[in-house]
């Protein structure tokens, strides 16, 4: 009996370390260093979480995140080849697709239908679209902020309403409203919340539900380099894992994002439910891009006779090489 037990023990002692050794992943090559320009918005949460939790490193990547104010700046860094990847809203993609064709959309990783808001001061009493006639509205030119305002006015039946569009950087919008340089602002988060911080309960939000859905996308250079394709896949894998972490540990994820963006927890808690994080690259994005491109052409934002073929912008290779489960996430 003793012999049998001793034999079992010996077999276990041999097999278990062997199994543990064999199931280890093969040795990774030296980590590739890349930089990704991200917008300083909670929509960039998957990147922040992936970086903080070392998920990029798990996939053999040494990622440097470059936080910038808005997707436009991120895009510019990408085009200038100062970063390997960039994040931006589909509006930035749409505008730039008229001028550039050397970038690809690798995946949408976040969506929100409440990220952009149309806000006014309570004192002005502005909360309905028809009240905006002849008013000055602060926007960020050639961004989702501009398209959002247009879409809202159009869909609410006030496309022909005359108002003054005041262009300014996103970080100035709140102060412009407070200083009454403008009557309303079309602003994305977290800049919208700055107003709430500065003047709590002293502002009004227009009911824009369903008007616009913002998507945040991961952009990269157009490439057929296998190494780049592998890198893109690894980035998406890390993002998929990060989204998984955000699903299973939302409090921890919010804490990491709050620390990175220097956002108060309450503010982030208020915004968090508005975001949907998932990796996708479907026709909804193409439809969105086309819709905005039509608008851009129609309003003279861009000088072009037709919309670009957005299908060529979408690079499905990295996303499709992810396991099915990661895509589902």
């Amino acid at each position: 009996m003793k012999k049998v037990l001793l034999l079992c023990l010996v077999v276990a002692l041999i097999c278990i370390p062997a199994y543990l050794w064999l199931r280890q992943e093969p040795l990774q090559p030296p980590a590739r260093k890349i930089s990704i320009a991200i917008s300083t918005t909670p929509l960039s949460a998957p990147f922040i979480v992936a970086k903080a939790r070392g998920l990029f490193r798990q996939h053999g990547l040494e990622v440097e995140l470059q936080p910038l104010d808005g997707g436009l700046l991120c895009f510019q860094k990408l085009i200038a080849r100062q970063v390997y990847m960039a994040t931006s809203s589909e509006s930035v993609v749409m505008f730039n697709s008229f001028e550039h064709d050397d970038f690809s959309v690798l995946a949408s990783f976040a969506e929100s239908d409440k990220d952009i808001k149309l806000l006014s001061l309570k004192a002005s009493g502005l909360s309905r679209p028809q009240q905006l006639a002849a008013k000055r509205i602060g926007i960020v030119e050639a961004s989702s902020s501009e398209f959002f305002l247009y879409a809202y006015m159009l869909l609410s039946g006030h496309g022909d309403l005359g108002f003054t569009q005041v262009n300014m950087p996103v970080q100035e919008l709140a102060s412009a409203l407070l200083e009454k340089r403008v009557d309303a602002i079309s602003v994305w988060e977290p800049y919208g919340h700055q107003l709430q911080r500065l003047m709590p309960q002293e502002w009004l939000e227009f009911d824009t539900k369903g008007v616009y859905s913002l998507s945040f996308n991961l952009l990269g250079h157009k490439t057929d380099d296998p190494e780049d394709l592998r890198t893109n896949t690894r980035v998406l894998r890390a993002l998929a894992q990060a989204i998984d972490v955000m699903d299973s540990e939302p409090a921890q994820a919010k804490r990491l994002v709050g620390q990175y963006l220097d956002m108060p927890a309450a503010e982030l808690d208020a915004l968090w439910p508005d975001y949907v994080f998932k990796l996708s690259l479907g026709n909804a994005l193409i439809a969105n891009l086309q819709m905005q491109a039509h608008w851009a052409i129609a309003t003279g934002q861009v000088r072009a006779g037709s919309t670009p073929d957005f299908r060529r912008l979408l690079d499905h290779r990295a996303l499709n090489s992810l396991p099915l489960f990661a895509q589902t996430l």
Partner: peptide, 30 residues
């Protein structure tokens, strides 16, 4: 639901209709 209600109000013009349709399409696809 919000879009449908918007559509019930005063969606006029080709641009608005197209945008509404695009929104419907995008949302349905999503």
């Amino acid at each position: 639901g919000s879009l449908i209600r918007l559509a019930s109000q005063q969606v006029t013009g080709v641009d608005a209709a197209q945008m509404l349709q695009a929104r419907f399409t995008m949302t349905m696809q999503a």
